[in-house]
Design a protein around this nucleic acid. Structure first.
Lengths: 347, 347
DNA sequence: ATGAAAGCGCTAACAA
DNA sequence: TTGTTAGCGCTTTCAT
């Protein structure tokens, strides 16, 4: 048998609990709980006493216990390939901003770019019983999908597009951005092209779509340089142009050649290397980036690139989750985020 | 009175629990708990049955319940000014890497650069009962400090240095980096200087120390340009140099002038603007950055800057926390992280 | 408006 | 090696 008035006594761990606060305020533990979650249900006099008691004791609610009892954690967990990549961190910025405003906290993990890591990370995340989960990309292992379905929580997949999301999806078609770049390059009169692409799968899809479209339209083959990296660096952009020039891959047809880069960082490196070598951009060599990072408009020449509103994408992802929480079944489960080509000086 | 065998029955919420698994495996709920946390204490036969049952049911442990019972969350929460700033995200990268390896997860919040936000964020974080907490910077409100002390958990403050940390501190003196830059500039023969500095408090300390040292040594005043931002952009670097030139602040003494920038991004912008205007770097205008970001060695000319091993700093922070967890009282509570001036082409 | 009782799904003693 | 019991600090439900 347990001590009948155990609940209104301070815990034996020494921690300040609702019971401690209640005792000090002369009310029961439940009243303290109500005071915090629904003040309207507590009398003004009790409220004052409780507030005082909280102030005196320095009470900080225990969200762990609350979550266990209510089966709501107010936790959202997010998986991104890399937090040091501005592309993902800016997405999260918009996402967190909205979520935090609604009282949710974000737990974050980097998964790198391989699926095995992701599976383990998903399991770890699910053990925290998040109210919702954000995933970057649309390719997940069968086991991962099964775990997520079983968890029966809202899941939003971002930064890519699929007709068959686990739950909902907010993103765009990477291949379409490649085709947009190709169409622009063709209409701008470029007859030859090369690509500089990092090794990640989405970059590859952009590159392939660009090359395919460009080659089809011009009849010319597109030289592809694969960069042995997942995270873009200026250095790799410079090396890419260096190889293109040194290995004679541009074959003296500079005046009508454009380089499609998998990111603005690569493009910026390409720009620097071209100018270091005395090449004029875009006259000798034109350059197209991807991402419209904040520096893109301020390089010399400024970078022609594809713009995706990442902050907005993050916000849309948050809204997708929130409408799931609200039980809004009419909310679309697939949201296409737009992109546009920003024509500036480099192409 | 509660039903005597409630515990070995599936929960009424429909969720798969240890009790469900145990029933299927023909053992009690505790045995399942042991199988997961300390397999050596469970017979091989039981282990097999339990593993099967877990497989069949797709059981995912409930870390919330575990945390409540054990009073350990295996959660570390971190507060950073901004996740889109590579300086902080790369720190976190090293930190998370170590922590995750030790079985901890990271919950992240952005605090912006003001103390009021931080206080609310700290309270929210503490309610999750993290096993440890990471704070960026050393300036915290009295209330914040009190909450942290009361929580009685390991706290590590990073990216700055204080003799009186809340618990432990891993960082460096920002003023010292400014003085190092000044000493270098003086010995390199520069007689005039200007500063380009973002508005955050640490950047200001670097700037002030640089200007103070430089002015003292040369007898010349240092022109300060404050940039109205917290997060550095290429654009702001360009504007800074534009103002310096357009407003005649450099007064035709270009040949011996150096600009001290609060970050590599600002410095890179300065570089671009200088070259766009036909100024030679470093002959007409020399530039010193801060941070040694990965692009710094690959701009044209390459950037002279101050290097801090951020990844290492993050790891050291993780180790500080881990030695606290291990109860290692001999571990230093203050760790100074080194920095060095990387002399390259821009100064 | 307030409180008592029950229980969220685990871990931590303690027994057997 | 296994099981029993008693909580962890809350929320929920049902009385009063």
């Amino acid at each position: 048998m347990q001590n009948p008035d155990r609940k209104d006594r301070p815990s034996r761990t020494g921690a300040v609990t609702m019971a401690t606060v209640g005792r000090l305020a002369g009310v029961s533990q439940v009243t303290v709980s109500r005071a915090l979650s629904d003040p309207a249900k507590v009398s003004p006099e009790a409220m004052v006493k409780i507030r005082e008691a909280i102030e005196i004791t320095g009470y900080v609610p225990n969200a762990i216990a609350g979550a266990l009892a209510s089966r709501r954690t107010r936790l959202i967990t997010a998986l991104v390939p890399s937090i040091t990549n501005i592309v993902y961190s800016s997405l999260l910025h918009g996402f967190s901003d909205i979520m935090r405003g609604e009282g949710y906290q974000i737990m974050l993990s980097e998964t790198g770019f391989n699926a095995g890591d992701e599976e383990a990370a998903i399991a770890a995340h699910l053990s925290r019983r998040p109210d919702g989960l954000l995933l970057t990309g649309i390719h997940h292992s069968v086991t991962a999908r099964r775990m997520l379905m079983a968890a029966a929580i809202p899941v939003v997949e971002i930064w890519d597009m699929t007709e068959t999301p686990i739950d909902c999806c907010v993103g765009f078609s990477h291949a379409d951005t490649g085709r947009l770049a190709a169409d622009f390059a063709i209409s701008a009169g470029y007859r030859h092209a090369a690509t500089l692409s990092a090794g990640d799968e989405r970059a590859e899809r952009r590159r392939f779509a660009f090359a395919d479209r460009f080659a089809t339209a011009t009849g010319n083959t597109v030289t592809a340089i694969g960069l042995p990296i997942r995270t873009a660096t200026l250095e790799m952009g410079r090396q890419g142009v260096a190889r293109l020039v040194d290995e004679g891959l541009l074959q003296n047809r500079l005046e009508s050649t454009v380089i499609h880069c998998s990111s603005d960082v690569i493009a910026h490196g390409a720009l620097i290397e071209a100018r270091t070598r005395g090449l004029r951009v875009p006259e000798d060599l034109a350059i197209i980036g991807f991402g419209d990072q904040d520096f893109a408009a301020h390089t010399d020449p400024s970078l022609t690139t594809i713009r995706i509103d990442r902050d907005q994408l993050g916000r849309a992802a948050a809204e997708a989750l929130l409408s799931r929480f609200a039980g809004d079944t009419s909310a679309p489960s697939i949201r296409l985020v737009g992109f546009e080509l920003m024509r500036r000086g480099s192409a």
